[in-house]
Design a protein around this nucleic acid. Structure first.
Lengths: 208, 208, 208, 208
DNA sequence: TATGAATGAGGGTTCATTCAT
DNA sequence: TATGAATGAACCCTCATTCAT
């Protein structure tokens, strides 16, 4: 079989699995569901993934990579001030969330699966690493801001990065719960406040 | 009194269920597990809760109420400046989290259950309301700060409340993933930055 | 639940399982089949036996015990010469075989299961022990014959016991294959020849 | 020649199948296993055998023929007294068994497959015929012994042949169960006793 | 003809729920 | 009311068989 075709089908399965897991949750989704969604037979799935758990684990990486790639594509596209870069970055993350809010439950599934069940340890570790990466990315931006005298030198880069990352993540949750929630506004305002809080020359009038 | 005994047993079941759901996840926990943990027979559970789903749903409210009560008890205990009140509030939430981090997975279970499965709609709505309450609580504090001229009048109360709430929530996640993560530091720094960002007379030197 | 009732149902399941395994073989029999035969639900079986393998293993002991008991009941019922005792014993075994020839496949299943599959080691050991017991039983009869000067003192008790046991067993196989096979004649003649062969004063004219 | 290659590959498959069935049992062996052992693709097997059952059935004949041929080659190799011929024959069978004891499970598989499953009737019949052949072979030896006045004329040729055949068969089983079991001794002693029992001039001192 | 990817029937097992005691 | 034995639907996974290449 052509390697190419195999990869194509594997991706189709990952896509289908992501959708089904998002809709029904990990426990509620059956391999049959995934296979049907991908337009394949149930047994075929096992030709690509050794078990339901492994499939889920692979979906995690596939999904995380996709997200990362998307964000990078739209983010590293120009020269901006650090402040603008930060805003652009979070804004980009938020747009991705809104765009694929129907996939947000998948993130929740990853979280809860990292807390119990057979995948716990593998997933916990993987997610911990992923969050570390994100924190480092944001941290490097803040660090740059300190070096260019935009941000105050005493800023706690580590702690703040975690807070920013967390805020974005959890705004997604609130948006998922309530589609009327103004996630763009909340993200912008929070970021503006934080950036103001660490800026040597704060901007004012950030409302609206 | 009969009614008293009934309530006592119901609470015992809720406590047991909360623990078991936290340990094994909703899907991984069986009614047998819960009953055994509560020291009762499997069938007895159905005398108090019509189904596993309902039990889980009730655990959500019971748990949320407990948390809220805990925080309130420790929070509304004195007269503080708005800034201090905010810091105290978030700090209090973080302490609760650290204190009962072994129950954190329960929160993740609620989140993921709100995304799929038979409880989705009920839970989504309930959690949405709960988040609204929290946002209003935080919002009222910020509003007070505006009124006392501590915070800038153009501050977006709604959006910022959501961001603060989200940051706290998600820092818990990062702490759950990685017990070495300095959640207190991250929370403090994030809050300090935000409060500085909206303060008319920012404090400086907030590091360490 | 009354212990008595539990034992009764367990025996009913063992009986049903023995029949189904005999009819369809271990691999060909499903737990559903067994449950249906016992007039119970599929899940009930797992309340009595932790797995199909364990059920099969327990059937082995249950069946071996039944056989042993049957034979003992009819065998140790009087005072006989050693020669007569031997003939009576083998004859008794053969009668049991004929009587329940429809269960003979069960024996074949035990044999083949002792050669491969998850039960191999457990079963191999158990059957080895059972054969040892049988050999000792026959051996003790021959030994007695030697001591009463019926049999030649140089007789190899061990080897002969094994041969006799084996012959009876395998005649069952031939009878199973071909219901017209004269198993009684073959058993009698073989035993007569063997006993003659080791007797100090052989009987003659053992034909017919 | 094409036909030659085909036969060669078929034999390779039969050999592979015999080994795999012996190791894992009929139910536990997959067509994949067999194909892999034969160094071919899974689908290829179906070019030679219409189904797993048919493959197994053909393995039976192929294996039985091999065994028969082996024994014949080593047995009909000289002029011996009938008594010696009998001992030589059984001894030869026993040596074959010991030599290829790792293939013994295959025999058990044939037996149990003759008792249940789709091959039951076909296999039962085939094995019945095979046993008949063996009995006739042994029977012809005994008959010859009667005609040469070595054995008593009233000997029951049929019954005894079956008993001898059975004894050898089942000693193999005991040896399979317990590798410490002295199968040579048991076979020799049993045969010696039987032959003594039907001899007009018995030999004595057959111990050791 | 040889291959192995695709298929889906089948079965062991779990567990929420019911109900007789 | 409390219990836990009984139930059967549901699901993961295996593997004999088919068929396009």
């Amino acid at each position: 079989m052509r390697e190419e075709l195999r990869i194509e089908r594997k991706n189709k399965l990952l896509q289908a699995a992501a959708e089904v897991f998002a809709e029904k949750g990990y426990a509620g989704a059956s391999i049959s569901d995934v296979a049907a969604r991908a337009g394949m037979g149930k047994g075929t799935v096992y030709g690509y993934f050794p078990s339901k758990e492994d499939l889920f684990f692979d979906v995690f990486f596939w999904y995380a990579l996709q997200l990362m790639t998307d964000v990078h594509l739209n983010f590293f596209n120009g020269r901006l001030s650090v402040r603008e870069a930060c805003l652009r970055f979070t804004s980009e993350l938020v747009e991705r969330m809104i765009e694929s809010i129907e996939m947000y439950p998948l993130t929740l599934e990853f979280w809860s699966a990292s807390a119990s069940g057979g995948l716990r340890d593998r997933l916990k570790q993987a997610m911990s690493r992923m969050y570390c990466d994100y924190r480092k990315l944001i941290g490097s931006m803040i660090q740059q801001g300190i070096e260019t005298d935009e941000f105050m030198p005493e800023t706690d880069v580590e702690g703040l990065s975690a807070g920013i990352m967390g805020a974005i993540d959890a705004l997604g949750l609130q948006f998922w719960m309530d589609p009327d929630f103004d996630i763009r506004g909340a993200a912008d305002q929070t970021m503006a406040a934080i950036l103001n809080g660490i800026s040597i020359h704060p901007e004012t009038g950030h409302k609206g």
